[in-house]
Write a protein that binds this DNA or RNA. Structure first.
Lengths: 338, 338
DNA sequence: AGACCCTTTGTTAACGTTCACAGTCATGCC
DNA sequence: GGCATGACTGTGAACGTTAACAAAGGGTCT
């Protein structure tokens, strides 16, 4: 019955006609251009409201060459660390008015990272955050000639790309120093997989603390972050009578260690003290509650978006920076004086 | 020195000129239109390769009105369940050639869901997956007139929106039946927050199993999914001498219960049997390893993308369906015969 | 041979926005 | 009174792609 059945959503021209102005004036109102008469502005705003107009961001992106979308490349967002980091990134980005497009990698080899980056740039993202905790990923990043502002999270030397990370070395040192201060002769270590930079950093901090105290560093036991690998390391440690203190590279493996100790009748902290890393929500309720090192993933996410936006919105690409977030020591009951 | 310094990336017209064809022919090659001579096609492909041309997806989206991007709205992707579901969704979407744009909600009220939906539709997504485990979110979804194909994950009655979910009732029944089959007189329950549909479903299953066995259902203890709330419930349960079996609504709370029991000297499974829900990676290494109900989040993610794509790519909006993924019982050592 | 169809290609016009530029009108100043 | 200045508004052309249509060429069938 009506003159024009409106099937498709209204566009700027419709608003313009409704308000009796040109489409450009509508655009000006939308972009808060100062030189629009107040009376005109309200008329346009009313028309927008009446028609339920919403600006087409795709068309806008085509002409401005900015999508207000940021890409995130991450490895296995099921893990607590990456999940928390991505969450922090997402919150910070949205607060700044940006969308987040995400790619979770299964394998972090050069092609994987390359494909993800291509995929995102094709989509027209304004910038990319790569959560690159593995050496190979960081290397891929360093090699790649990317035309889009990029920031690496937890990456090592990632070429010219700025990096935001938690000070893993300091964390390892904190854990080890704590155990030494309790009077332990030396500290054993269950490390993460060798390709991971975080694992390396924690090993380095542990070694540094031992060296400074003039202690011998025992051979670290290998793990892969999983509770199971911690469990296996724990069985080995339980059979050694001279072990009194263990620094485990993450809380999940620490859980495995605790389980193995419990099975073998090794009391924690009476006979062996254990320190973890991450402070996952469960740690406080392990048996016993786990002393650990907390990482502020929220801060990492916020900082990475900050660095990225400065790169995007500022003109000159600042020198590759490295922003380090300090870890925090969390004292519970899995450690005791020797 | 060169004739034309190419600052900006090449566009279709550049490829066309290089290959000596029209831009439309280039478009046809890119879209795998059948009616292009093989010789022409290879010539275009060579030009694309030579120039390093990449199609501008924004311009494409403007004219096709399809962005090949799917929106995901989720609540706190730090939790294991949502994180795993989103991961599954992301993998399935990428396999189908779709991008994922994500919004993590802090609070799930009507405005929160509404804003997220607006935000995503503004961006021009082709479809939306709402991970809506809370009643309020599902309701918001039912109320909202949305112009975009949508699917709810773990949502209850979400109006006309199709739903993919794990059979929570069946899960609760599985857990309770298992405990009853071990000879326990009745089964206590630590439930999740009342606004959560998953919590309700598990309670319903627990009640149904008890009713079928002709047993009295004790008053369930309230929890909020966190280990701490489980710990508090555990302290209450430890003080009651007639408790021999507990079904806890998720593994994190079960951890808290186990911790409280350990502190109070209540042996599991000797004096009390405990069953959890989720099968998080840690559960196998709790003390004792936790008998629990596994949810296949990967399947949920795949199914939800499947339903969504059928809705997008198929023409008719099929009747609102409800796809239920069965849970699985995982036997460990936290339960024993009475 | 001519009508017809199919394959292959090109031309022009959208899609909905912002940008660059050009107007119009009122105001202030000499 | 004329001219510059500033505020406000409108017109046309991008942005880079796909859709719609037209046209050229070659083959088949009667």
């Amino acid at each position: 019955m009506g003159s024009t059945q409106r099937q498709r959503p209204p566009v700027m021209a419709d608003v313009a006609k409704e308000a009796g102005v040109s489409h450009q004036t509508v655009s000006r109102v939308l972009n808060e251009h100062p030189n629009v008469r107040t009376e005109t502005r309200t008329r346009v705003l009313e028309a927008i409201d009446k028609l339920g107009y919403r600006r087409n961001l795709v068309a806008r992106a085509l002409v401005t060459r900015h999508s207000r979308t940021l890409g995130v490349v991450s490895f296995d967002t099921t893990l607590y660390g990456p999940a928390s980091t991505v969450y922090g990134i997402e919150q910070a980005a949205r607060a700044a008015g940006y969308f987040i497009s995400i790619v979770s990698l299964k394998s972090i080899d050069r092609t994987g990272v390359r494909d993800a980056l291509d995929y995102l740039t094709d989509q027209g993202v304004d910038g990319i955050v790569v959560v690159a905790p593995q050496r190979s990923a960081a290397q891929a990043l360093a090699d790649l000639p990317l035309g889009v502002p990029t920031v690496a999270v937890e990456g090592g030397e990632a070429g010219d790309v700025p990096v935001v990370c938690v000070d893993q070395v300091e964390g390892g040192r904190l854990a080890t120093d704590h155990l030494l201060s309790l009077g332990h002769e030396t500290v054993w270590h269950v490390r993460g997989p060798s390709d991971w930079l975080e694992a390396e950093g924690r090993v380095a901090g542990w070694r540094a603390a031992l060296a400074r105290a003039g202690r011998e560093a025992p051979e670290p036991l290998a793990g892969d972050w999983s509770p199971r690998s911690g469990y296996e390391a724990g069985r080995s440690l339980a059979s050694m009578t001279d072990v009194t203190a263990v620094f485990v590279a993450n809380d999940q493996m620490a859980l495995g260690v605790l389980r193995a100790f419990a099975e073998q009748g090794v009391k924690v902290p009476e006979r062996v003290s254990v320190v973890g890393f991450d402070d996952i929500p469960e740690s406080e309720f392990f048996s016993p509650p786990l002393t650990t090192i907390r990482q502020d993933f929220g801060a990492v996410g916020r900082h990475s978006i900050g660095v990225l936006l400065r790169q995007i919105e500022g003109d000159g690409p600042e020198e590759s920076e490295r922003l380090v977030v300090p870890p925090a020591f969390v004292s519970r009951v899995s450690t005791a004086r020797r």
